[in-house]
């Protein structure tokens, strides 16, 4: 997917240069400016995520997300999922491993859904673009929705 993205970007840049050199240089300048603008937050968040994942291991997570953990387990799963931000290629195998080691579908659904939709560590970036209120409303709504997803999936699977 990343390769495809590079190909698209390079082709677009090539076409752009063919049409107007000045505009293309301006586009690259703008690209760099908006990247540098958000870089301090990006770097800070990377360190926070690294520290958090170093402390929270899969074994620890699976201990609290067992099938019998019920709503308590769902809440814990939602809290862990909301705070952390894990790349998907880590998150899905982790969720699959948790299921095998005894976690329930309801808890895993809460974990996966909040992991993707709710981002507490990334809030500084979101606030930079959307302001405090919109950020809090969106994350709170996504958290509530994730709990509904967990409930439905717990009943259906």
């Amino acid at each position: 997917m990343t390769t495809a993205l590079y190909i698209i970007a390079l082709v677009a840049l090539g076409v752009s240069f063919f049409k107007s050199k000045e505009k293309s240089i301006l586009a690259l300048k703008k690209a760099w400016k908006s990247f540098e603008n958000i870089l301090p937050q990006f770097l800070s968040i990377l360190i926070i995520i690294g520290m958090m994942l170093a402390v929270l291991t899969p074994e620890q997570i699976s201990k609290v997300l067992g099938n019998e953990s019920g709503w308590y387990g769902v809440m814990i799963a939602a809290i862990i999922g909301s705070i952390t931000l894990v790349p998907a290629f880590v998150a899905f195998p982790l969720a699959a491993a948790l299921l095998r080691s005894g976690a329930g579908y309801m808890q895993i659904a809460a974990f996966v859904s909040t992991l993707m939709m709710v981002g507490i560590v990334t809030m500084p970036i979101e606030i930079k673009y959307f302001g405090k209120k919109a950020t809090i409303v969106r994350n709170a709504a996504a958290l509530a929705f994730s709990l509904v997803v967990a409930l439905v999936m717990g009943m259906a699977l």
Partner: peptide
């Protein structure tokens, strides 16, 4: 462990962000 995790996330970020920002710059201009 945390330095390793931060580093691998950093590499992931660096690999995926350049094309996104280039496309954004082009979008902004064109």
């Amino acid at each position: 462990k945390s330095v390793q995790l931060t580093w691998s996330n950093f590499i992931e970020m660096l690999s995926v962000l350049p094309p996104i920002f280039i496309l954004l710059g082009l979008l902004d201009v064109w």
